[in-house]
Amino acid sequence: MYTPTTEEPLLALRLHDGQDTQPQQIIAARGGDQLAQEWIAKRWMGPVYRFNWRMLRNEQDAHDAAQDTLVKVLRKLHLFEDGRNFGTWVMGIARNTCIDLYRKRRRLAWEEPGDVVDLAPSPLQEASRAQRAVLLQQALDKLPPMYREILVLYHFEHLKYVEIAEVLDVPLGTVMNRIFRARRKLRDAYDTVGGEA
């Protein structure tokens, strides 16, 4: 551990967009208040849709999964335990819905075991930012879903590590192990698509 000598500018890396859902809104929505239900649906549709879109890579599937997720959220509000993190609860439902649809559409296992590849320097570090974004998307698409989801939750939805553990319902150590494997696989896939480009 060290103590910095100068203040460094902070990056807004983990800002959760929008407002948090308040307990009163959850209680009102549970009681059938349509306005409260609409508020919850609108507040959480963004993260839920983006997650599904990045995982399923198909607009129609993302649309169906996002709508299904919010329907489940609204119908299962009575199961939400007060005091828990509402956002991770919603994202957990989104993930389960996404897994169901993924298996149905592709008949593939979500948890595909993979080897850890060597960390090699990328040959494309000098490529432009936009080019690298395109290659990164292609590399992400090549990852098994269990690795892609953890990168999506971290890099796009800016969840904290403990929040990712809640969404995936695994210990924090497992999250860390999986995220490092995911990064190594991503680098490997990135180098592969970069070599093909």
Partner: peptide, 16 residues
């Protein structure tokens, strides 16, 4: 991605 218009509203209607 662009979030489709009316998707949240459709989810509320279906849930009700």
């Amino acid at each position: 991605p662009r979030i489709p218009d009316g998707l949240a509203q459709a989810a509320v209607m279906q849930a009700r």
